[in-house]
Design a protein around this nucleic acid. Structure first.
Lengths: 117, 117
DNA sequence: TGTAAATTACGCACTATTCTGTAACCACGC
DNA sequence: GCGTGGTTACAGAATAGTGCGTAATTTACA
């Protein structure tokens, strides 16, 4: 459960996307470039340590690109890579699945789809 | 961070699918009905406690249906519900995304798509 | 003019919480 | 006693949060 490299692509993908933060960060980054502090403001419940760790994980996975500008009060930009952008609609589809499923349970006939755009 | 019901459907979906086992179980169940012990054999690295917990989680989420036959040496069947079956192609798409992404890194021009059907 | 404070993006150490695994046990019918 | 599906009790591992420190520079203020 440590360095087991599975050959299963789904397992590999879930290794990166599992947890609360990865998909949320994808969600906030799909609008464009964000700075570290902006991402913290977007989501105040994540600690800075975890945010840094998660961003690094996404960077290692090739989903997010980190751009550090050397300068005075320090400044780092994050944005999605091409693979990262390709991931966005898939994650949106998962959200739509959830909405659809809840809809089946609570409502019934009248669809009240709120498919994330 | 305990019983916080988020309004974000993606977060809700990931709450169920996060971790190693949910997507794997979906994968094994997409072929049809399986018994508890079959799922253990399919995936020997999961402990039976965790398997029971994960199956219950998926059942609560409405993804898996549990059918207990009362009888001699006890027998329980698991299979996917309708929402569960709708989830399968989305998960396959995540796998395909991974394959594609790895392909971009190692290979380059010639696409070697293995989009799971 | 000197000093303190704020800013930004973290790293490190420590703690708290959560997850996962092991082992034992239950019920049942044979 | 065996095998089935499942639960509980406890232990260890993984994950998450808190708070302090750092770098360089600007601002706050007496």
């Amino acid at each position: 459960m440590k360095d087991v490299v599975s050959r299963c692509p789904i397992e590999e993908t879930m290794r990166v996307l599992s947890g609360r933060w990865p998909t949320l960060l994808l969600y906030y980054l799909k609008d464009g470039t964000k700075r570290f502090s902006e991402l913290r403001r977007d989501n105040p419940t994540v600690s800075h340590r975890i945010l840094a760790l998660e961003l690094r994980k996404l960077e290692d996975a090739g989903i997010v690109r980190r751009t550090a500008h050397q300068g005075y009060p320090l400044r780092v930009d994050y944005d999605l890579t091409e693979p990262g952008r390709r991931l966005v609609p898939l994650i949106d589809a998962l959200g739509a699945w959830w909405v659809h499923t809840q809809d089946d349970r609570t409502g019934g006939s009248e669809a009240n789809l709120e498919t994330a755009a």
